[in-house]
Design a protein around this nucleic acid. Structure first.
Lengths: 227, 227
DNA sequence: AAAAAAGGGGAAGAAAATTTTCGACTTATT
DNA sequence: AATAAGTCGAAAATTTTCTTCCCCTTTTTT
């Protein structure tokens, strides 16, 4: 399994030490850097490009934790930020979620919980914790929609490969995998793999859902005449 | 010279035809697609990833030109959008500039001017035209700063290669090219080339300016201990 | 004014990241 | 049971990005 690089940001020496010990105790986790302020955290993040950031949200010196999280998210949208908090103040936690963090933990959380959170974040599973779960979930659904369903969709389209685009067109025309394979002169297995990647990019589990969205956005005619 | 792919977006058939003729008359310009509405323009942009978009800003049906420009800019930040306008309404032109367009032209502009604008945009030179020049220039300077000088700088840092980062560190320590070359055990020429790329990424013309910025942002200590 | 350093452009080869291709296996549909 | 849909992994091919170095011009030092 690949190595996961982690950036620690906490202004208290003792807390940093504890996190360092925990991370070092797990084989495929490693420390990218250990920052003592929000400002340092942003700089180290830019330099080291960690997979995960464990950020104390209560830091105040130089740059607040929430602000630092937001900056890091702007610079490295794919880096997963996990926030550490002492008092579970739902409002702060919620504010942080809006700036791009993917999970939060109590600072006193047991080792196992921290490690699990790291793996979850790395694998894109947000184990949204109970207390603020609902507020976040509904709010997030809203944001994702309003980030313009259209922009969101087009961004995905722009990231498709030429083959995927072509296959999307053929799928929208109602063709089956075997038929598509014949047209493209490759094995069905290849087409299946490519549709699989396609679905992953659209974050959907079936072609039906993708086609439904294409139709809802009235994109069929445009996709149809892809060269 | 490479081929430049251009997307045309205008709701009037005659205007599209004229632009198509102009583009086809130049050897290394080619038409990626020709859109009849802002909506189509966004879709085609996502599908074709053109280098340049020539967008009629007065389109209204389905999606306004300014809105379409803004969407395309979100999806493809590197695509250069040139706006076409009939009445030179500075406010509209200015609004458009804020959403990511890089130049504007009168619709009646002569062929030569259009072609020149395309090349300028492609080569990242904004020939900012006189009438609104000052307003835009000052406003833009402000925006570029306030887009957080810090975020902007860190984004660049995050895009440096390992060698470039290393060289930046050595430059900040006051070393000369020859000395850096010795440390890295390569020819001075190599270092010179890499510093050149470094400067391009920072959009600066000399290492001095880069170092000044590093110091202003108090980043020297952090950069110093890059592994 | 000469020498040294800084900077720009281009191009070949190396290295890294993506894409394409396909087989094996699992789960839904018909 | 058969067909279709979908997932995972992995080798080969392709594309992109980095590295390296050469040649040439401009700026700075001495």
């Amino acid at each position: 399994m690949e190595n996961i690089h982690i950036l620690i940001a906490d202004d208290m020496e003792a807390h940093r030490r504890r996190l360092e010990r925990i991370i070092n105790s797990v084989d495929n986790l490693s420390i990218a850097a250990s920052a003592k302020s929000g400002y340092e955290a942003v700089a180290y993040a830019a330099i080291k490009k960690p997979d995960i950031v464990l950020m104390d949200i209560e830091m105040e010196s130089q740059m607040a934790g929430v602000k630092a999280a937001s900056e890091i998210h702007k610079i490295l949208p794919d880096t997963k930020i996990i926030m550490l908090t002492v008092h579970q103040d739902n409002n702060i936690v919620f504010a942080a979620f809006q700036t791009g963090i993917v999970d939060y933990l109590m600072k006193a959380a047991p080792k196992e919980e921290i490690i699990e959170a790291i793996y979850s974040a790395y694998n894109n599973q947000s184990p949204i914790r109970p207390i603020i779960a609902e507020k976040i979930r509904t709010e997030f659904a809203r944001i994702k929609k309003s980030e313009d369903q259209l922009t969101y969709f087009f961004k995905i389209i722009a990231n498709l490969t030429q083959s995927e685009l072509e296959i999307l067109k053929l799928l929208c025309s109602g063709l089956k995998r075997k038929e598509i394979a014949d047209i493209r002169a490759v094995e069905v297995e290849t087409i299946k793999k490519q549709i699989s990647s396609l679905l992953k990019k659209f974050d959907k589990n079936s072609t039906k859902e993708v086609i439904t969205e294409v139709n809802e956005l009235r994109l069929f005619d445009l996709i149809k005449d892809i060269s």
